[in-house]
Amino acid sequence: MRARSIETLVGLFMLAGIVALLVLALKVSGLSSYVGGTGYIVTANFDNVGDLKIRAPVTISGVRVGAITKIQLDKTTFKAVVTMKINADQNEIPADTSASIYTQGLLGSNYISLNPGYDQTVLKNGSVIGNTHPALILEDLIGQLLFSLKNPSK
């Protein structure tokens, strides 16, 4: 009886090790990217997503309403297609909502902010957000600044 309980405990120990390894592999190093929870899928096309990453938050007025699940490149328009999952209880977002990519703090990571419009129809599973603002790239801004400084006549 004692021998068997020792074997069971050793088996549990090994099992705990395997489970922890799976957690490290999947959850920490992101071998598979999976965003849990129920919700509906909305996509938006951006000119530039900057440093946006999978699982970054989607917010309205700073409150988190969903997460980004996929970032792809459209092969014909060469725009970035960002797929996001909005929480199921946020089901009254107007269809003419616009999406912008902002940065958390000066050096932080990027996230998507939704600015609700006034449309009577709402975003549904598979909707596409048409009105988007790309990420601000710091180098572009500096470039524009330098250009306008060099050409003050404008």
Binding site: A25, V28, S29, G30, S33, K53, R55, A56, R64, S109
Partner: peptide, 20 residues
């Protein structure tokens, strides 16, 4: 801290082979 950024940034920078 936002849970999504916590895990998302972690997954973006922790490599399975090199780190774990």
């Amino acid at each position: 801290v936002d849970g999504g950024s916590f895990w998302g940034n972690m997954q973006a920078s922790v490599a399975f082979h090199e780190d774990i």
